[in-house]
Nucleic acid binder design. Structure first.
Lengths: 356, 356
DNA sequence: ATTTATTTCGTAAACGTTTAAGTAGATTTT
DNA sequence: AAAATCTACTTAAACGTTTACGAAATAAAT
């Protein structure tokens, strides 16, 4: 059993009332310097710590937020969480966390638990799966504010959301490949029900269109496990060994891109000369793989920080904009640089690449 | 303002006492089927959810644990957290999280906050920095159980801890390199105050000794930012361009190892023929980099799950072993396989490598 | 000396629960 | 018919706080 000491213990030890002790510790009015010092000393001596639950009950306010992410060992989400925690710690908020694993039922259970534990707000990156409006309905009916991160809902206007310009990021990536002289650009995307994957596909199409290229359906492949390299390997092998093979790949994650590296190596081809590659997320992999991978940067930490700011503002006075979209930025590295002129720029900048 | 409804609201609506409502919802004795159904229906209708804080106050028990990690965007720690959350969710515990950033003051603040919020236990992977016995002292005085993960204390016997056999992992790695014919094996390690880095160094020495090789101090380098490739690049370049150059590297992280890849590529050398490399942690990088990196696997998720089990047992009845050490396992990949006989085994196994 | 103000403390209620104890009324036992 | 038991409910206290209100003691003003 833990060993808690409350106001009552201090009061009893000093023969004063609980009220007096409370006032002393909270630096309130109506108290003499003598008794206050006496009480502070005794509190220190007994190792007193206030009970946040009692305070929550009495004051009807609780400085805690809940965070729901599909998976915390995913690099992007872990950086989002980091951003949230940075701000939360400074603002003295407690961070409670749950992992939905893209499971709607689990997501719901977590929300239920958060409500029971009186969070004053929720930051959620919803599961890929379709209609989860229901999961948020409970929060809405309880008037507990929530902020969406990264993944918009289908029907959701009037939702507070911190998002990333997935479409434009894809556009930048593909446009860059085209400018580098690639003409037959394949895309490996995720499932069709994944909104962000579709947004990136849209950017891909727009870049082709903008540059007068037509879309070849054979060059668009779907992929289930986008966080592993396996399908990237197989799909690219299939494409690169076919009659009409692409000269570049745009993938929805860096992991898929790394699978393509393997194919290219096995086939004895060369990146970026024969095959150009651009990934997505600018994860650790991209700056460590060889040649370094051009990738669309997603500022997870900034997005997390912004989400917390939104939430805090909403909690305090329901002010806060409805939406903030983070601009995409392409980090250009060797994997897509056919004309070697710019390679010097790459090292010059910061050894990680130069932004466009 | 959130929109809470309590037992009182249900009681008032049905003209019964709060006690009756409580008993109905908790399936207690002393209640007729009629009134119980009536109450359940009304609770549903009003969207009632119990207030965990009130229950915590009254019952003096709270199903929540605190987790403190140095950094959540570090892959190993994020998998530890994942393991903890898996188990915690099943056991219906709330998970509160704090990131210490290797900052002792912040670590202390987080512990203080956890205590205030009545966690019934803490899982902590302590900061690298030296004497943090003090930070844990408060938990001890409050009799709040805690479990250490991964990083042992200097003085700590009688601490509950889930650890990894860092020394043996290093031994496996270096012994493997020697068996592959490498003789001049360098190590890039972390700071001297980092206990796990030292344990790995010990394993390195033992493997050399066991195989009748002597330690060359010029082949041992220290590194500050072990989670980035930069120093790995510079230190290895310095060593590989010197008169007496190593023929293999053992590094304390995969990130450092990836820096060596860059050096080797720049110098036009070949992995694994001219330079063998083994990393540590078996992070995502190791199976994505080319050639694939041999690395010591750390089962973060299992360690997290074990930590939760330890904690839960300790909370319940103070049973639970004091310590569990996870055995090191070496995942052998191309970066250290000089005799190509075994390369076939690598692909055969699982495309990721074969364990030793 | 009486009134008025000021300082410093205590009393009691409240937050949302649970639970020990008490109490009617109905039912059973003697 | 009285006594005992059972059923289904209520009252009240408690958990650890905060806070409106009241009150005693001292100081200041009349």
């Amino acid at each position: 059993m833990p060993n808690r000491v409350g106001l009552k213990d201090i009061a009893k030890a000093l023969n004063v009332s609980v009220t007096t002790v409370s006032r002393a510790l909270n630096n309130k009015f109506d108290i003499s310097k003598d008794t206050r010092d006496k009480i502070l000393k005794k509190a220190e001596e007994l190792n007193y710590r206030p009970n946040a639950h009692a305070i929550s009950l009495r004051k009807n306010e609780y400085y805690a937020i809940g965070v729901i992410l599909p998976s915390i060992d995913h690099y992007f989400f872990s950086t989002v969480l980091k951003g949230i925690m940075n701000k939360a710690h400074m603002a003295n908020y407690l961070v409670i966390i749950g992992e939905s694993s893209h499971d709607l039922v689990k997501e719901q259970e977590i929300i239920e638990k958060f409500i029971a534990h009186c969070v004053s707000g929720v930051i959620i990156s919803p599961s890929n799966k379709s209609s989860y409006g229901n999961n948020l309905a409970l929060l809405k009916s309880k008037r507990i504010p929530y902020i969406l991160v990264d993944r918009p809902l289908e029907d959701s206007k009037n939702e507070r959301i911190v998002r990333f310009d997935d479409e434009y990021g894809a556009f930048l990536a593909v446009d860059h490949l085209i400018k580098q002289g690639y003409r037959k650009i394949a895309m490996i995307k995720g499932f069709d029900y994944c909104t962000i994957s579709n947004a990136r596909f849209k950017g891909y199409k727009k870049a082709l269109e903008n540059n007068g290229l037509s879309l070849n359906p054979d060059f668009v492949k779907h992929c289930g496990f986008i966080d592993e390299s396996g399908e990237g390997y197989h799909l690219s092998k299939q494409m690169l060994t076919s009659m009409n093979r692409p000269d570049a790949f745009f993938t929805v994650t860096d992991e898929i891109a790394s699978g393509i590296y393997q194919t290219v190596n096995e086939l004895g081809m060369k990146i970026p000369n024969e095959v150009g590659i651009v990934g997505y997320s600018n994860s650790k992999i991209s700056s460590v793989i060889s040649p370094r991978l051009t990738s669309v940067e997603q500022p997870g930490m900034l997005m997390g920080e912004q989400a917390f700011d939104f939430l805090q503002q909403t909690i305090i006075d329901n002010s806060s904009t409805l939406e903030r979209t983070f601009e995409a930025r392409l980090v250009v590295r060797a994997s897509s640089l056919r004309n070697h002129i710019q390679t010097s720029t790459v090292t010059k900048e910061n050894n990680y690449g130069v932004s466009v």
